[in-house]
Design a protein around this nucleic acid. Structure first.
Ligand SMILES: [Mn+2]
Ligand SMILES: [Mn+2]
Ligand SMILES: [Zn+2]
Ligand SMILES: [Zn+2]
Lengths: 145, 145
DNA sequence: CACTAAATAAGAATAATTCTTATAAAAGAA
DNA sequence: TTCTTTTATAAGAATTATTCTTATTTAGTG
């Protein structure tokens, strides 16, 4: 119930934002956003498409890619960096970092405000203006241990 | 001169390691390793190939990919994680992190031993056994500022 | 030198992503 | 609502990045 409400809120905030940015609110965009927001993993475009064709049988994979690109440009979602060939996505939320299991490739969120608040080492100052920290920690998840 | 010596050392260490691992020392492997070790950027397979065809005109792109894969499996080189489509590579050296310029996409190394030595937040303990930290910091390099 | 296993070149194949174009449908106006 | 304009979509073609297949070459070894 609370969860459903959160979902509804997320969706209407999303629709709001689309209108502000001059983007049309299409069923495809709503469903793609909803599906990604409902994911607790970090799905690929392909995976999302697989999940969505159930409810939108004519949805094309291209639309998923195109829409994820649009959302990403708006900062609504993030492309998660990994060394894998397929890109992974997530709805933007509280800034966080990722654990990646080297065996099953699962991506797990965790927060580390202490790191976020720490300044980079002094010598980086001369290299440019850098800020957004994204930490990836590799290891083995508890299911694979 | 000192640099040349370092290079020679790197190459012979490399040859040593190949033999230990039962890998044949081929001109292609030597040159690919040399080219990557001589790079101060983080080239893609394609970029490396472009650089190498000058000295090895028959070198195939496939060999570059295959060889980088082999080296990577040995831990001799690293695939650098970015959200870009093409993979970037570097010869393994002192553990370090990366600054990525959002404008020119340049990848810049920096070290942060303090981060390396800091334990992850307590709540990650239950998620598995994670250790290898890889920090990417996004921003604008000084040339693009 | 001769043998054998491993590596390579070349091009075909595959996987991931993006592009092209004809059609559909949102948003806004009448 | 209906009409108009503009944007988004579906479908499949195209492109890009990477990997595979196979015939040939070569490193390592005796
Ligand atoms: Mn995440
Ligand atoms: Mn590096
Ligand atoms: Zn795992
Ligand atoms: Zn730059």
């Amino acid at each position: 119930m609370v969860i459903e409400k959160m979902q509804t809120d997320k969706i209407s905030t999303f629709q709001q934002l689309c209108r502000e940015k001059g983007l049309r609110v299409t069923p495809q965009r709503i469903e793609i956003f909803r599906a990604l927001a409902a994911s607790d993993d970090h799905p690929t475009a392909e995976k999302l498409h697989q999940r969505l064709v159930e409810s939108l049988p004519t949805l094309s994979l291209d639309t998923v890619y195109r829409t994820l690109g649009t959302f990403s440009a708006l900062g609504l979602i993030n492309k998660v960096e990994t060394i894998e060939s397929q890109a992974h996505f997530e709805v933007s939320h509280a800034h966080h970092h990722h654990l990646i299991c080297e065996r099953c490739k699962k991506i797990i969120d965790f927060e580390w405000p202490q790191l976020d608040d720490t300044d980079l080492p002094h010598e980086t100052q001369s290299l440019g203006r850098f800020d957004k920290k994204s930490l990836i920690v590799y290891g083995i998840c508890r299911h694979c241990l």
